[in-house]
Design a protein around this nucleic acid. Structure first.
Lengths: 216, 216
DNA sequence: TCATCCTGTGAATAAAACTTCACAGAACCC
DNA sequence: GGGTTCTGTGAAGTTTTATTCACAGGATGA
């Protein structure tokens, strides 16, 4: 069952949203304060969080940051009556999945929920692979650099990649590209351009997370 | 030299922005239309793009999408006179790095440019020596098992560990224990009991996270 | 004390990961 | 056509990682 948490200090609105989501087949947890939300978060794994921007105590943006620390990819939809471009941009910069302004139509909210969940599902799409491959593949710094460069450029030709990484020996590059292809992180299109697969993107995200975790 | 492209159909504004950026030490390319921007993009690698949201012909949002196809992580700052929450959210959802409303103060724009470039630079610094050790150490399934067992038991004696993992050859275990000790994941107390260090605990958490991320 | 298990070292060996070298077809430019 | 760059293969060689073997001191217990 898809678990959704609704965080809003406005009891009426929170309960009506929870009711609608419940009728739509979701399992809903309610929290009236940011601190309460964090407690729920520690106890249960959620698939989506609806978050009021303006709350007494721990504010929505700050809470969003705390959620990101714990669950970097958990989808969060921000809700607010005080719509401003700055707030919206700030929320999206913090990694909010969507931004809904009050008052909203219920079907609009449901559409947003559906879309965000759909995206999340796509995000962690069918990738049953073993940790061994991923870790040993990523344990080589050159391969990590290759992935990062390809991600940055979108698609790259073989020789451009060599030059970017200042690799004089192209067969060495070939060796590592082969490994990355076999691991399913890279693919080549019909014109031989190298690009990241969705798995590759996902895995790079994991590396970033690890780096961040190990940084402090 | 940092390459910036300014895309705006308003010639006055475009040229004044280009001038300011030029004085700030950036190499600036101008485009008055979305199509022109795509041509530039095909010829040169940019570090940042300033993009007007509303343009005749190919619009800013659509152009942003096209840019994302080619270069998923190329920083793009959206500029618009018609600030609306919806537009801002849509732009950020497409992966814009920031969103600036006209009329803007030049120093505000420069600040935004500086910040976004700074973030991109941070993204790129993935030369963590630590990551190598961590990943190569964890890429061995036996070592991951050792860590997991030690965590589960708290502290363990050498031979108990061997038996738990059903390793008949104790020197093999010794080999891997040595690596784990050198990486700083395991330590031995005065009575030779093996236990996780705080780094070890942290790293195990990361492995769990990765496993979860890659599981479904 | 003697036998046994625990904990470890160092060397030899095997396997894997990585690099380098030699070559070659396809595409592109003159 | 002829030279050059791009993209690749396969094999040989090197380095790193992993396993196995031989041995040994210290603790433990009968």
């Amino acid at each position: 069952m898809t678990e959704i948490m609704v965080v809003d200090d406005d009891q009426d609105l929170r309960e009506s949203v929870a009711e609608v989501l419940g009728e739509a087949g979701f399992s809903v947890t309610q929290a009236s304060r940011g601190e309460e939300a964090l407690e729920h978060l520690a106890l249960k794994n959620f698939d989506l969080i609806l978050l009021d921007l303006v709350m007494p105590g721990l504010g929505g943006l700050e809470l969003l940051g705390r959620i990101r620390d714990k669950a970097p990819r958990l989808p969060v939809i921000m809700i607010t009556a005080f719509a401003s471009v700055d707030n919206a941009v700030a929320a999206m910069r913090q990694g909010a999945s969507d931004y809904v302004t009050k008052p909203f139509r219920i079907d609009g909210l449901l559409a947003s929920v559906g879309r965000v969940l759909e995206e999340a599902r796509f995000e962690c799409c069918r990738t049953s692979l073993d940790l061994d491959t991923v870790l040993s593949c990523l344990s080589n710094p050159l391969r990590r650099e290759i992935l990062a460069h390809v991600e940055q450029e979108g698609t790259l030709r073989f020789m451009d990649l060599c030059r970017k990484l200042e690799l004089e020996d192209h067969t060495k590059m070939n060796f590592h590209l082969k490994i990355l292809k076999e691991a399913g992180f890279l693919s080549q299109d019909e014109s031989k351009l190298y690009g990241l697969t969705s798995l590759g993107t996902q895995v790079l995200g994991c590396v970033r997370f690890l780096t961040k975790k190990l940084a402090n």
